[in-house]
Design a protein around this nucleic acid. Sequence first.
DNA 1: TATAAAGTTTAGGTTAACCTAAAAAAATAT
DNA 2: ATATTTTTTTAGGTTAACCTAAACTTTATA
Lengths: 217, 217
Amino acid sequence: MLSLTEENYLKAIYHLSDGGTKSVLTNEIAESIQTRPASVTDMVKKLAVKNLITYEKYYGVKVTKHGKSEALTIIRKHRLWETFLVEKLGFDWGQVHDVAEQLEHIQSPLLIEKLDEFLGYPAADPHGHPIPDKHGKFHVSRQIPLAEATKKKTVARAVKNSSQSFLDYLSKIGIYIGATVQILERMEFDGSIEIMIDGKKKVYISKEASENILVTE
Amino acid sequence: MLSLTEENYLKAIYHLSDGGTKSVLTNEIAESIQTRPASVTDMVKKLAVKNLITYEKYYGVKVTKHGKSEALTIIRKHRLWETFLVEKLGFDWGQVHDVAEQLEHIQSPLLIEKLDEFLGYPAADPHGHPIPDKHGKFHVSRQIPLAEATKKKTVARAVKNSSQSFLDYLSKIGIYIGATVQILERMEFDGSIEIMIDGKKKVYISKEASENILVTE
DNA sequence: TATAAAGTTTAGGTTAACCTAAAAAAATAT
DNA sequence: ATATTTTTTTAGGTTAACCTAAACTTTATA
């Protein structure tokens, strides 16, 4: 588990690297988190040992896959909390940042999932910044019926038909908003599909059902 | 401002002292926060310098007025967050403690006031522990029948008549334990009243019903 | 390409919060 | 009242995260 300080460094590095694309220099980090370059060097070594970044002396750091995923979790938490503060508690826009900066470090995966649900799975925070889902994915892509999806992993985002009976059916088979859904096989004769839910449960669903579940990549 | 650790010590001492009435020994503190007596001695000196407790070598500590007020703020935050987790996010009672333990250290007076408002100024958390108000006062105020309340906002606390039919009736019109209930108008001719529930729903209820709903201010 | 400037790292020090082991004080038992 | 046990404190050490100052690399300039 990461310390509060490690989380702050990682988040800063992730942002400075434009989402993990560029490498980031010591002085940039020092300035962005208001600390001294010597302190950055210390911390950067620690993060490299933990495999969150790669560090090449004098040439800066890059975030690893693992580091990116950790950074996205922190960003997700930050943006969900900002959304909560504005939408539920009636904070003004300008007041939320410092508080969200604290709240983003609360350690409880359950809390974040519940908060996400409570907020209705928002795609963006009050500033319009996209909120990564629990798998670290941004949802820029528009929603399509599961029936039209490829065999790549998708995430259930909404339902077309929101009748109680359909929702009951979905919860019975284990699909919920936010679940990972991957098509395994399509049946020629009736258009039904076999899917994998959250990487662990296989079920068959009818063509009709698959047309009423909206997913994003 | 207090560090996270100082807050935890202070809260533990406050609880062990039964709300500031008894003095507390080093070993009790050490056990309650799972640390070593030597560490407690260190911290206790620090807290004494900050005037949160008085410390007499070998004879334990007492919380000062200032310390009590700080402790109550932390307890207030803890209980408000627990209430939030259960009532709004649907946590089970047993799941909330560890998370609230983290959330209680978030520094933002505004956040706590807004949260309190959002929750409808609860007098007790889901365990029934009283929540101090922002001045550190507990509201022991006794329950009175809604029929006898003023036009100030009140909170439904209990029912006199707990027949199934009455409970069904209450849930049908939107009253539940913890709901904010405010009398808008009293009808002279039959004693029925118009009330506002949770600040958004207006309904009329009979005199008899209003005599069976117990509220606190 | 040598030299200066800018950026980075290393070396060594500080503070908060912990620890262990030994010393000291208080409480208890003989 | 003295000896033993329990409790508490002191002394000194560790770790994470910071710092300054000096040394070293890389980059820019003459």
